[in-house]
Amino acid sequence: MTVDWNLFLDSLWPITQGALKGTIPLSLISFVIGLAIALLMALMRLSGNAVISFIARAYISAIRGTPLLVQLFVIFYGLPSIGVTLNPWPSAVIAFSLNVGGYAAEVIRAAILSVPKGQWEAGYTIGMSRTLTLRRLILPQAARVAVPPLSNTFISLVKDTSLASVVLVTEAFRKAQEIAAFSQEFMLIYIEAALIYWVICLVLSMGQTRLERRFDRYVAR
């Protein structure tokens, strides 16, 4: 088997473009919204109110107990049958955000619980409210604990966005599929797509390391 390097080089830019216009913004937007959902769900789970806590628990269970592909199909192909029709992009963003929200909620909850109770009390004794204590003292400390697992969530998300190709979002993998179908060079093009995902994830891992180092400033080693 000979490698068609010309095809490889010619398709590099289109697939990368798919990553730049599809994969990366889709991942970033979904992750940010997902984190907000996750924080809300984590706080709801930790709240003393049984009903609120139950709602969060049910949400997390549903997200974690069903395939992402199915969630994506429910939103893109299912919702129109009850009169809600969404474009590919919003559908994908909603599905991925909800998904991240379910997974990251448990990470954030655990990180919050890992902060010693004395930190809450120290906040209260200097006159802080619960909310201010959470924002100024607990979340910054929880963030350090949450960086490695949340980085995993983010890296998974980047790869999972390839599923958006099935709801017609133009991202890296869909570009690759188009080129492969056209050129019939499946092996070459899919390996090329895999390499591009790998590079993105390597960059993210480096970012994770830097972030961890920044947080390590204030812990004894």
Partner: peptide, 19 residues
Amino acid sequence: QVLRSQSAMVFQNYNLFPH
């Protein structure tokens, strides 16, 4: 909470904010 504006507490294990 109104009581807290009157006093400040020093803890056995300090409870400083590590970050």
